[in-house]
Amino acid sequence: MPVTEVVTDAENLTMTVIADLAAPIERVWSAYTDPEQLNRFWGPPGWPATFTTWDPTVGGRAVYSMHGPRGEKSSGAWEFLAIEAPHRFDVIDAFVDDDGNPLEGFPAMRMTFTFESTPEGTRMINTSYFDSLEALEQLVSMGAIEGTKMAMAQLDAVLQDLRDYAQGKGTRVELLDDTHVRITRLVEGPRELVWRAHFAPELIRKWMLGPDGWEMTECVPATEVGQSFRNSWAPVGETEGEAFGFEGEALLIDAPRRAVTTERMQGMPTETLNDLNLYEEDGATLVTVLIEYPDKETRDMILSTGMADGMESSFARLEREVLDR
């Protein structure tokens, strides 16, 4: 994980992000100047960025949007002021509307990105310069510090070869804060097929079974926004346990990349928000599930049930039974 520090300076009207990255300067420069790579880490978890315009020339523009899990949208634009590959680029960063015009009442700032080689890799320094203390305080109040740290935490997966980053590490659980958990698992198979395995009933029944000794008794997927899903399981033979199930609604479907659903145990009011993202590289797919819990107590209670172990059993079965690995 990058070592990231965010420093605000009210006297000089700046916010500075410092990150030490375990990759050579050319590799880090590539991540910051390729829109496909920026898409993977510029937005914080749950708010992935999509760069729709990219003209990295002095006077050129880049335009991006970040989409929240409940349909929210926030857009921004860069105007490139200077480019000195692979050491520096400067931009004017502004909030914009759907037509790319600056939004009134939101701060714009000059941002500099500098990259320095170090014995361990590269130090990235990103400094934002504000016109007033009010503009700096407004951005901080919007969650810029927390969002930046969470976004930067995604950079390791971009800088490394995907298999080097995740192969053989099983299902990993990261506690991002009191209510957010990120679960990742590398699956040896193409994204299109992994997506189908999450939404086609005949494939779901082959792998989404949890630990051995359980069977899926009900499988109704939600493949369009507004649809409801319902999955149920029951123990088989001498396996101990009580039948249970989950249900919820689809809030966002962007096949074959992203799906956001609510989820609650059948008969229970407590609800989570599950944000599924799939990224493919060289025939392997990184499955990422960002889960938002209502509170820390619910988070800890659900994690203590052995959820991660059940997911690992299912993912292993996915590779074995669906992907023929």
Rank of each mutant, 00 (worst) to 15 (best):
D164M: 03
D164K: 03
Y165T: 02
Q167N: 12
G168Q: 09
K169W: 03
G170H: 04
T171L: 11
R172K: 13
R172D: 09
V173Y: 02
V173S: 07
E174G: 05
E174I: 10
E174N: 10
E174H: 00
L175S: 11
L176T: 09
L176A: 08
D177Q: 04
D177V: 06
R182P: 01
I183H: 01
I183M: 15
R185F: 11
L186G: 10
L186F: 07
V187Y: 07
V187H: 01
P190C: 12
R191G: 06
R191A: 14
E192W: 03
L193K: 14
L193P: 02
V194S: 02
W195I: 10
W195M: 04
R196F: 04
H198W: 13
H198G: 08
F199Q: 12
F199K: 11
A200M: 09
P201E: 01
L203R: 09
L203S: 01
I204M: 11
R205L: 11
K206G: 04
K206S: 06
L209T: 01
L209H: 10
G210W: 00
G210P: 07
P211S: 01
D212S: 14
T217S: 06
T217R: 00
C219T: 08
C219M: 07
C219K: 01
C219G: 08
V220H: 14
P221G: 06
T223F: 08
V225S: 06
G226D: 01
S228T: 15
F229L: 07
R230M: 09
N231R: 14
N231Y: 15
S232T: 12
P235R: 00
P235I: 01
G237D: 07
E238F: 13
T239D: 10
T239L: 11
E242K: 10
F246R: 03
F246V: 06
F246W: 05
E247D: 12
E247L: 08
G248N: 05
G248C: 08
E249N: 13
L251W: 04
L251Q: 09
L251M: 10
L252R: 11
L252W: 06
I253L: 07
P256E: 08
R257I: 08
R257H: 14
R257F: 13
R258A: 07
A259Y: 00
A259S: 14
V260L: 01
V260W: 00
T261G: 02
T262P: 05
E263F: 05
E263C: 14
E263V: 08
E263W: 05
R264V: 02
M265A: 09
G267M: 11
G267S: 10
M268D: 12
M268K: 10
T270G: 09
T270S: 11
L273R: 07
L273K: 04
N274F: 05
D275C: 02
L276Y: 12
L276T: 03
N277P: 00
N277S: 14
L278K: 09
E280T: 13
E280A: 08
D282C: 03
A284S: 15
T285W: 02
T285M: 08
L286I: 07
V287I: 14
T288S: 15
L290M: 13
L290P: 07
I291H: 00
I291K: 01
E292H: 11
E292A: 12
